[in-house]
């Protein structure tokens, strides 16, 4: 008979997360002939990402989607996915995420470093860009700006290297802090920027594409170890489908979101001179991957080598 499982994620349905969850649910239903059904819990109903990850580890929630940056709260080496300019462009991003070797390396890393949860596959919300009340057209423009970054060692290294001052705060405080000038800028994907209305307080987004918003599909070990070999095959195949189809759709969604924002009067700077940023970031790429650990180093090499 049919069994219901929960998938939790902390963005609304109409985002890349919703796309991924729907692909996964549809494919799993199809492969299992309606015996494995996924119930979606969007919009952080069951908690913020680091909190939900804890609950997945404990087996209270069966599936979840999380940013690789939040996965680093469980396994610091996951920070490799946040390295700046690791993904060269949209095409490279799509290929790297669909690469079986990359996916396998990542799964191995999680299996060897995290207890209680297992990664099924990779997905993305596209690239992260800088948004503020002013344009960031080149490296010189970011000098001295107070930028809200995710609290990870990668961001703590890279943004000061660009000459910016970093500020840590939870995602929920970004809006107010941009409004009050506690920070001058923040960085995220176009759709996240749109859906969370951050354009209201920082109406200019500069497409710096400094890092990808990569994400993971998790399953609790409690469920994974209880599945039959056949069921595991279905679940993995449904996850592979996500890694194959979702990045293209998510990137389309980013383009649509940018068009919608432009229509509303928000300014999108598309011709950013990225060369200055890339030049600063290049020497850090390998060094930081090696500092994170052997798994991170391997993943970085595999991604960089993907053509």
């Amino acid at each position: 008979q049919a069994k219901h499982y929960k998938i939790a994620y902390d963005q609304p349905v109409g985002t890349g997360y919703g796309i991924a969850a729907t692909i996964f649910a549809d494919k799993l239903k199809e492969l299992s002939k309606g015996t494995m059904l996924i119930d979606q819990y969007p919009g952080a109903q069951l908690g913020q990402e680091p909190q939900v990850l804890q609950l997945v580890k404990a087996g209270d929630i069966e599936f979840c989607l999380s940013a690789s940056a939040n996965a680093a709260t469980l396994t610091p080496q996951a920070g490799v996915m946040s390295l700046h300019f690791l993904m060269r462009d949209e095409n490279h991003l799509k290929k790297a995420l669909a690469s079986p070797e990359v996916s396998q390396a990542f799964r191995t890393m999680v299996d060897e470093t995290v207890q209680g949860a297992h990664v099924l596959g990779l997905l993305t919300l596209g690239f992260r860009n800088i948004y503020a009340k002013k344009e960031v057209r080149n490296l010189a423009d970011i000098k001295g700006m107070k930028v809200r970054v995710q609290a990870t060692p990668t961001e703590d290294t890279m943004f000061p290297a660009y000459g910016a001052q970093i500020v840590h705060m939870p995602f929920g405080s970004v809006y107010t802090s941009l409004q009050t000038g506690v920070v001058d800028a923040a960085e995220n994907g176009v759709n996240v920027y749109l859906v969370n209305k951050h354009y209201e307080v920082a109406p200019i987004m500069s497409m710096t594409q400094h890092e990808a918003n990569n994400n993971l599909l998790w399953i609790s070990d409690k469920l994974w170890s209880s599945l039959t070999a056949e069921q595991k095959g279905w679940v993995q195949a449904a996850a592979d489908e996500v890694s194959k189809v979702e990045p293209g759709k998510a990137l389309d969604l980013e383009t649509q979101s940018a068009a919608k924002l432009k229509g509303m009067g928000v300014k999108i700077v598309t011709d950013v001179d990225k060369s200055g940023f890339q030049k600063v970031a290049q020497p850090y790429l390998e060094k930081m991957a090696n500092d994170l650990g052997p798994h991170a180093a391997k993943i970085q090499q595999l991604i960089s080598a993907t053509q």
């Binding site: 680091p50 990850l53 804890q54 580890k57 404990a58 680093a72 709260t73 469980l74 610091p76 995290v114 207890q115 209680g116 995710q150 609290a151 990870t152 060692p153 703590d156 840590h168």
Partner: peptide, 14 residues
């Protein structure tokens, strides 16, 4: 359980 999850950026277990 909190020993396997870390507070950022200091990496202190939660």
């Amino acid at each position: 359980r909190g020993f396997s999850s870390f507070r950022m950026p200091s990496m202190t277990p939660i």
